Simulated assay, not measured.
Amino acid sequence: MRRLIAILILGLACAMAHAATGVALVHGTGKQTDAANDYWQSAMVEGVRNGLTDKQNLLVVNCDFEQYMWDNRAAGCLAQQLTDFINARNIDRLIVITHSNGGNVMRWILSNPTYDARYPNIIRRIVRVNAIAPSSAGTPLADAVINGNVFESALGWLLGYQNDAVRMQQVSWMATYNQQNLLGTAGRPALPVTFRSVVGTDVTSAVWDGDSYCGGYAQSVGLEITQNWLDSCSDGFINCSSSSAAGSVWFRDTQRTGGGAVLNHNQSRRACFGLESILANDLKG
């Protein structure tokens, strides 16, 4: 009996030794080839990496998220990169951090496990999805773009042109997807893993306010302008009601950021006000 117990303990120790926690950063709308530098930037990526025991267990996804979420260039690309990462690094605990429309692509995979043979293995590995400012219920700005409104050039990365991803994020379109194709919103079955959002509640752009400069002052000014199309509670791109629509709310910006700062939609993909440390510390749990 003692020998059997010893063997079981040794087996458990070996399994734990080979277990690995990994994190994947999933960008938002846009066709990315170097998201680490162009979308997240080094301070954010390395700040999140600090939360990992094995610093190599971090993936920065690069996909074409100008497509509909189910498109092979979007969800298919994401599924393949996650699969390759899981296999190469022996990941059995995966924490996914998404931003903006990346939350929709991730939620497509979670909601439709039979759509692609790669999805179930990915879902089994995911511990949780931390969705930063997800456009879970769409955004009126997508409606405005499709209707031909012109916005500040500083927001080109955010709004793009009349591509399928922007078209998909129109409010009425997302309402249909939430009712028919996606899980996690009110009245729908729950998602198979924890999906929790970080909600940006406002935009600061006053020239005298130092908070306006984190992530770029021009972007803050642009998001202050686009906030005119949105509710009073918004991050300049996503209404709070949209970013809170799927799963649960992890926290609203001011509840955890340094100095109680708000996170506009650009700042929530940046190392602003300690966000990178909040995300890194979460990897340890």
Rank of each mutant, 00 (worst) to 15 (best):
L4R: 10
A6P: 03
G11Q: 02
A17V: 00
A17K: 12
A20S: 14
T21A: 14
T21R: 14
G22P: 05
G30L: 10
D34Q: 05
A35W: 01
Y39N: 01
W40D: 02
L52G: 04
Q67H: 07
Q67P: 00
Q67Y: 06
W70V: 00
W70T: 01
N72T: 15
N72E: 14
Q81G: 09
L82E: 05
D84R: 09
A88I: 00
R89N: 12
R89D: 06
I95T: 01
V96T: 02
S100H: 10
N101Q: 15
S111F: 09
P113W: 06
A117D: 02
Y119M: 03
V129N: 10
V150E: 15
L155E: 00
Q162D: 11
N163A: 09
A165M: 06
V166T: 08
R167M: 13
V171H: 13
Q180C: 08
Q180V: 08
Q180H: 14
L183S: 13
A186P: 02
G187D: 09
G200V: 00
D209W: 13
S212W: 10
S232Q: 13
G236S: 12
S242H: 09
W250Q: 04
G258V: 12
A261V: 13
A261L: 04
G274D: 03
L275C: 02
N281S: 05
N281G: 13
